[in-house]
């Protein structure tokens, strides 16, 4: 079949109350936003046509992000610039969701290979906690059990997957910046690291929050 749409990739942020929108609910939310915004979004053909939207990388419920990716098509016979698509969506998205840029994608989403996170550990004893975190990260081996897609578990060395960690203590928290594998090949949920660290730490922690800050390609560049 002849391709009758133009690909568009939108990068959007997810914060505030929007962090509670699950992956499935995000699909519905975006479909309705497209409809309200009167964007000529491409529908799948066939018996039950529906808006085609793809989110190549899932985000855990509760996590914030500055860089979620959404791929979709615009009907070729009613073209609209990426900028206009972004503006229209932003005028009708629920609070906490915002398109930061939209463009013609340069690469396949299959090339996503890592993501950067900022993890905040809230604590009354940030100094002690940051020491613990540094010690934890400097271990040679960090054995964890990872869930497999088939529902089983496999043992992996998490240490191998942790890239460029930076630890900083602030007034009420310890901030960890870290890159972890993401995408089709291997995907490490930051929660795995958090749970593993929490089970070793003794400093009091009142809350943990996660924000995804970058999505990276094979070469460690920002995925576009």
């Amino acid at each position: 079949m002849v391709k009758d749409y133009i690909d568009i990739r939108a990068v959007f942020s997810k914060e505030g109350r929007a962090v509670f929108i699950s992956h499935l609910d995000l699909m519905r939310t975006m479909q309705r936003a497209f409809k309200r915004a009167k964007i000529p979004v491409w529908h799948t053909k066939g018996y039950n046509p529906h808006v085609y939207i793809m989110f190549p990388l899932a985000l855990s419920l509760g996590a914030e992000s500055e860089c979620e990716i959404m791929d979709f098509g615009i009907n070729m016979d009613t073209p609209m610039t990426p900028q206009e698509v972004a503006d229209r969506l932003n005028s009708t998205l629920p609070q906490g969701l915002k398109v930061v840029r939209a463009y013609a994608p340069q690469t396949s989403h299959k090339l996503i290979s890592a993501a950067e996170y900022e993890i905040s550990f809230f604590s009354d004893e940030p100094v002690k906690l940051s020491e613990e975190l540094k010690n934890y990260l400097s271990q040679q081996e960090i054995p964890v059990e990872k869930k497999t897609k088939k529902g089983g578990v496999t043992a992996i060395n998490l240490k191998e997957h942790i890239k460029n960690p930076e630890v900083k203590a602030a007034d009420d928290r310890v901030l960890l910046k870290v890159a972890l594998p993401a995408g089709v090949e291997i995907n490490i949920n930051p929660q795995l690291l958090i749970d593993s660290f929490l089970s070793t730490s003794s400093a009091p922690i009142s809350n943990v929050s996660v924000k995804r800050t970058k999505i990276l390609d094979l070469n460690g560049n920002i995925f576009i």
Partner: peptide
């Protein structure tokens, strides 16, 4: 509320913020 909502089933029901 936002902290404990994550421990519940379908937390989106407890935090508002919907369009409209």
């Amino acid at each position: 509320i936002q902290q404990i909502a994550l421990q519940a089933q379908k937390p989106a029901r407890y935090v508002g913020g919907e369009y409209g």
